[in-house]
Nucleic acid binder design. Structure first.
Lengths: 330, 330
DNA sequence: ATAAGAATCGCAAACGTTTGCGAAAACATT
DNA sequence: AATGTTTTCGCAAACGTTTGCGATTCTTAT
């Protein structure tokens, strides 16, 4: 059980703990001679500062928290990947908790974050969470919270978003460009702000254009439902010319239906989605999609949090631009 | 800045810090009267024990570390998901770092884990890591390490594995059952122990059977290479009757090639893979696969680590059974 | 009433750091 | 040689907890 402490080093070198502490961080008060003697001994003894003691003393945990409904999710994992990278580069350690969309666990987790004195927090609130009350407490203890993805509508919070409206609009425009008129638009749970935003922008884009399309909007919660929805329509010969999928989950279901019905893309039917790009790349032809990159959003969120930590007044909302990636599915 | 401490509570109630400490954890020495008075005040003051102080005092961090090459990976994310769940249930917090397969970062991360006095560690060593030397230091400081997925060949370590041999064998048996003879077997980097194991078992299974097959073994590093490999063969009309894919990455490439060449599954060509099941479920028909569940492996790894922490001598190697999931692709 | 025993609580040290301040020693200035 | 200045270092408190041990008060039995 190696446990080299400052005290131990001080004992061997024959100086005080404070000199050791200062020597190890190149404090100018310590002469080069003793400094080097101490550093050398510290190296051979594999000294590693006790993070807890440091944090306790400095009131500076260097821990950043992150909470998502599920880690195992294409979008969240890329966000986490991105944030972890930045944390490591900036000397923070990351504490990750998942809520399983359970408000009770969400509250429990916030407590854990507080106990661990995280310096900041990235949160995607669970879809079943109705109130933001428990986040108020984070404000009281001065822990800045950056909301992302499924962000609350509240004005007084810090959030980073995809350009949800713009993404939906771009998808709509791409559809309009094809001149095809029979659209099946598959959206997610209307309770989520992300769905509301995308839906609104999608509809408005079609209202703006003069050529009227036949748009069928359906709300879907799970991959299986998307599969059934599309499958049923094809069975009844109500085949749309283009399917719009709001998310990967929906795209997966729709694609499986199309494959089973042996409809060829893009000849017999077109499809477009909003995605981070992984799922669209699995198919041939590659699905055309508007990018919402968890990776990029992570970077944005991190700079946002850094701004909060450095005390500079952060913008209330930052938005990540949307980009259209043309595959061959339209 | 809310910062309720034991001292603060003690000041208000008018008793000593130790009484407050004991009252809050229902120590029998404290009378119910004062205990309740203290607990009530603690609640209204939103007292949250300072984890750093606790850990410093108890030498008991309750932090568990996890290191993988990438978080953003279908297998790792499910493993992480699984482990996080257990950690939360058992009062541990999880510290996650990724190596990007860079041995330098790997060493840096181990240092971070040590500084944070993690009580245990889950590690998937990076594929570019040649030596286990830096893990020796973990032994010196009594931090148990549970290796998973790409585990080193070393005998003296604790590891949890998929039944890699058995999985490959089951896949081979499933192929043999189809009576089809022209097999294209796509394996990953031969430098990884996981590849070596699977390859060996796969080949042996075919050697055991009397009916000889024509097995073409190809090693592949990236999804794109799998795509090219399969694509080229189909172009040259060297079409196998069955393709075996060792991993999801390979399966994705192979499937994209088959889709682009418009080969129907399973009529014109069969395909089988080793996977956790997500990618196989994306296609129609669902791909037949031998399951290697990161989720289940996570549970196994956690119990293994718990055993280490409780002092009971852990088995050197634990193996997770393989299961065949029959889709419709054979 | 007294002593023994139980119930209830406080003291103080310890965990490993960081840091303001002061002390001693070395050096430079007149 | 006396004073001033700089270099180099140690003291001690503080961060917020936990816990062994001793002290005090309260019961109960004699």
């Amino acid at each position: 059980m190696n446990n080299t402490t400052l005290k131990k080093i001080a004992g061997i070198v024959g100086c005080s703990i404070s000199t050791v502490s200062r020597a190890l961080k190149h404090h100018p008060d310590i002469s080069v001679a003793t400094r080097e003697r101490i550093i050398e001994l510290a190296n051979t003894l594999d000294y590693e500062p006790n993070a807890f003691a440091v944090h306790l003393r400095t009131k500076h945990s260097n821990v950043i928290g992150l909470m998502v409904p599920f880690i195992s999710n294409l979008f969240y994992e890329s966000f986490i990947d991105s944030v972890e990278e930045e944390c490591r580069k900036n000397g923070f350690t990351l504490m990750i908790l998942q809520t399983a969309n359970d408000p009770k666990i969400e509250i429990e987790n916030l407590k854990l974050f507080r106990q661990n004195r995280v310096m900041g927090l990235f949160v995607c609130v669970s879809s079943n969470s109705k109130s933001l009350a428990h986040y108020e407490k984070m404000k009281d203890v001065d822990i800045p919270v950056v909301f992302f993805d499924n962000v609350p509508n509240d004005q007084e919070i810090i959030k980073v978003c995809m350009a949800d409206e713009r993404a939906a609009e771009m998808a709509a425009e791409a559809i309009q460009k094809t001149k095809k008129k029979k659209i099946l638009a598959l959206f997610g749970d209307l309770g989520l702000t992300i769905t509301q935003k995308r839906l609104k922008a999608f509809q408005e884009s079609f209202q703006k254009t003069e050529t009227k399309c036949n748009i069928d909007i359906v709300h879907i919660n799970k991959t299986e439902d998307a599969l059934k929805e599309v499958s049923n329509r094809v069975s009844k010969k109500i085949i749309p010319s283009i399917i719009f999928c709001m998310s990967d989950e929906i795209l997966i279901g729709a694609m499986k239906a199309l494959q089973s019905k042996k409809l060829t893309i893009p000849n017999q039917i077109g499809i477009i989605s909003i995605s981070n790009g992984f799922i669209p790349s699995l198919y041939y032809p590659t699905i055309t999609y508007v990018e919402t990159s968890g990776f990029k959003l992570g970077k944005l969120a991190f700079t946002q949090l850094l701004a909060c930590l450095s005390g500079s007044v952060a913008l209330t909302e930052l938005t990540l631009d949307a980009v259209l990636f043309e595959g061959g599915s339209l």
